[in-house]
Design a protein around this nucleic acid. Structure first.
Length: 268
DNA sequence: CTGGCGGTC
DNA sequence: GACCGCCAG
C-alpha cells in the first residue's frame, strides 16, 4: 500500500478511537451518577466526616449533617462536590420541609417567616442540581440557617460560587459548612432558631495531587472584601466550634494542614 | 446565583 | 397551606 493509504487508515483509527474513548467515559460518568444515592454514605460521608458535638448525625443521599437541637439547625453539613455533580439543569424550587430524620424534631420553616432572615442553604441547591431528587433534598429545614439576605446573596454566595469553581478545577472538593453556634446569638421564631454571628466553610481536596485544605470564617454581614481576606486555619474554626474536622486523616498530615492558614495552593 | 412575597384557590 | 408568578440584588 501507498504511504497515503496508510496515513488515511491510521487517521481514521485515531478518530474512531477518540469517539469510543469518549463514549466509554460518558457511560462511566452516568453510571456513577445513578449509583450516587446508594454510595453516598460510603463515598461522601465516611472518611472526611467531622465529629458531632451533639451526637446526632444524619445521612441523606446528597449530604450528611450534625443537628444541634438547642440551636434548631445543623452545626455542620458535609458533602462531596464532585466535578460530575456540576450541572446546569434547572429544577423548580420546592417548598421547605421539616427533616423527619431529625429525631429531636427539626425546626419548622415557619420560624423563618417574617423573621427578616433568609432560609439560607448550607448545602447549596446549586451544588445538587445533578438530579431533581438531590436538588429537592437540599430543601429540608435541617439544611438551612437564618442568614441576612445581603450576606447570603452577597459574599456568602460568592464563596459558594468559588467552591464550584474549585470543584471544577480540582476534580471535586469535600465541603463542610455551617454557622458558628456559640456565644450570644439572636433567635427567631417560636422554636428559637439561633442566628449565628459567624459562618464557616472548610474544604479539603484530595483528588488533584497532594491533599490540601482551606477554611473561611465570615462575620454574618455582607462585605465587599476579597474572599481570601476571610481565610483562617482549620484549627481556628475547630477552636470556635468544638468540631474536629478530619479525624480520620493521618495525624501528622491533619496537624500540619489544619494549622496552616496559607491559601497558596488554592487558585482565586 | 441568592432569595422573599402577594394573590388565589 | 399549597401553588403560581413576579420581584430584587
Amino acid at each position: 500500500m501507498k504511504r497515503r493509504t496508510w496515513f488515511t487508515i491510521i487517521a481514521i483509527a485515531i478518530i474512531i478511537g477518540v469517539y469510543v474513548y469518549e463514549y466509554v467515559l460518558v457511560e462511566a460518568e452516568q453510571a456513577e451518577i445513578v449509583l450516587e444515592g446508594k454510595e453516598a454514605k460510603a463515598n461522601t460521608n465516611a472518611f472526611f466526616l467531622p465529629t458531632s458535638t451533639t451526637n446526632q448525625i444524619i445521612h441523606h443521599n446528597g449530604y450528611s449533617l450534625s443537628y444541634s437541637e438547642p440551636h434548631e439547625q445543623a452545626e455542620w453539613v458535609a458533602y462531596e462536590l464532585k466535578k460530575s455533580h456540576l450541572s446546569n439543569t434547572n429544577h423548580k424550587r420546592p417548598y421547605f420541609e421539616i427533616d423527619k430524620a431529625v429525631k429531636t424534631g427539626a425546626a419548622s420553616w415557619r420560624n423563618y417567616k417574617n423573621s427578616g432572615y433568609d432560609r439560607g442553604h448550607l448545602c447549596p441547591a446549586a451544588d445538587r442540581r445533578y438530579t431533581k431528587a438531590a436538588h429537592d433534598e437540599t430543601f429540608l429545614t435541617s439544611n438551612i440557617s437564618p442568614q441576612d439576605h445581603q450576606f447570603n446573596a452577597g459574599i456568602w454566595n460568592t464563596l459558594e460560587q468559588k467552591v464550584r469553581y474549585w470543584a471544577r478545577k480540582y476534580n471535586g472538593v469535600f465541603v463542610v459548612t455551617g454557622g458558628v453556634l456559640s456565644g450570644r446569638m439572636k433567635t427567631i421564631g417560636r422554636e428559637g432558631v439561633s442566628v449565628p454571628n459567624y459562618f464557616y466553610k472548610v474544604l479539603i481536596d484530595s483528588n488533584s495531587g497532594k491533599t490540601k485544605m482551606i477554611a473561611f470564617l465570615m462575620p454574618h454581614k455582607d462585605s465587599s472584601k476579597p474572599l481570601y481576606e476571610f481565610v483562617v486555619s482549620v484549627d481556628e474554626v475547630e477552636a470556635l466550634t468544638g468540631i474536629d474536622f478530619f479525624p480520620e486523616l493521618a495525624d501528622e498530615l491533619e496537624n500540619k494542614l489544619e494549622a496552616s492558614r496559607s491559601y497558596k495552593d488554592w487558585s482565586f
